[in-house]
């Protein structure tokens, strides 16, 4: 994985929610999309993604349904209204966090 584990740890939920905001997807697609969007820097393992999806579903942010319209019986996930609110909330928090770090880093780097 390109990014360090610690950086990613806090934001995986956010990433998964963002991808689902693009539309309903199944696990394999989500992994692909993550890879694309991060230009190969985020390569999640299936064993990491599915627990996240299940946890998000248990929390009500996401709902799943089995569908075989693609020719194969698959489990599709999509954001719920609660999930949309969670995404907005998390995104705001993340931007605030990011600004805070930037505010600290910029002057710090100048001194190096």
């Amino acid at each position: 994985m390109g990014f360090g584990r610690d950086i990613l740890r806090g934001s995986l939920d956010l990433m998964v929610l963002s991808i689902l905001a693009e539309g309903p997807q199944y696990g394999y697609l989500i992994l692909q999309r993550l890879r694309e969007a991060s230009r190969g820097q985020v390569e999640l393992k299936a064993g990491t993604l599915y627990p996240i999806l299940h946890r998000l579903e248990a929390a009500g942010s996401v709902k799943s349904r089995w569908d075989d319209s693609t020719g194969r019986d698959r489990k599709w996930y999509q954001l719920t209204p609660k999930g949309q609110r969670a995404l907005r909330h998390e995104a705001e928090a993340w931007y605030a966090y990011s600004e805070c770090i930037q505010a600290l880093l910029t002057p710090a780097l100048r001194t190096l």
Binding site: R5, L8, R9, L12, K45, A46, G47, T48, Y50, P51, I52, H54, R55, A58
Partner: peptide, 29 residues
């Protein structure tokens, strides 16, 4: 390899039902 260690995965997936205190907050580590 992608799926990883069955025990770890089972642990993660079963978290939803675990009653005792040792629930891990982070699913990554």
């Amino acid at each position: 390899d992608e799926f990883g260690d069955a025990a770890a995965l089972a642990h993660d997936l079963s978290q939803l039902n675990v009653r005792r205190k040792w629930i891990m907050r982070s699913t990554m580590g």
